[in-house]
Amino acid sequence: MINADLNRRDFLQKATTATVAVATGVVLYQTGGTANAATRADATKRWGLLIDTNGCDAGCDACVGACKDENGWEGSGNPTTDPSWIRKVNLKDKRTGATKSLPVMCQHCENPPCVDVCPTTASFKRPDGIVLVDRHACIGCRYCIMACPYGARSFVHEPTKNQKPHMPRGMGTVESCTLCTHRIDEGRLPACVEACSTKGNAVMTFGDLNDKNSDISTQLAKHVTQRLRDDLGLEPGVLYGGL
């Protein structure tokens, strides 16, 4: 009887220890992913980008190169399956023949369809409006790619190489522009914006759309701008001037 009691007590102690250990692991795992990213974000801010297409040169892709270097998503030469976080698109007005060039990346929508359709909540929006993929929770179903009206997301088709410590990537998951959250959270500019101002024509402005006195808000108050596929009511955080 005594032995049985001791065994039972022993068992309960071990079971409690194991439960606490597992629970701690689960909590740590969760806070290390989405929760951590969300708590760093400032809910009073709404980060946005303004792109002046009047000055964007069709021959310049400084923003694309900077993003690849910063985030380590250089492709392997297979254009159909290589990742694309940001791309340059050249346009011609059907009626007038006027040409335009502009970068297209995740538009960081206020009402993002990728977040709506994601079955596992891996696609999520930070309190400051940045739309991200939690690569620990992405199952690689690609429904978000189907739902994005901007072709802003890509699927990692091949084993990854040259990963950056601040931007882990994984084969079999979906990824897209993070607006360089790792830089923003340190008070720096996204890599594309910085490259555009130093190597390009300085047509990209980054800032807080909620701050009336920010550079981006001041410019938006002066000029007519457009959101891509504004008819869909997604309220993107990326705005284009001169389009």
Binding site: V64, R87, K88, V89, K92, V104, L228
Partner: peptide, 26 residues
């Protein structure tokens, strides 16, 4: 449904894009 290109820029022809913009998916 996927092969038909996304209509991101109504009123414009896409003359160049690194991500097959405006092109039918193969």
């Amino acid at each position: 449904g996927q092969a038909y290109p996304l209509e991101i820029f109504p009123g414009y022809d896409v003359t160049g894009g690194a991500f097959f913009d405006g092109k039918v998916g193969e």
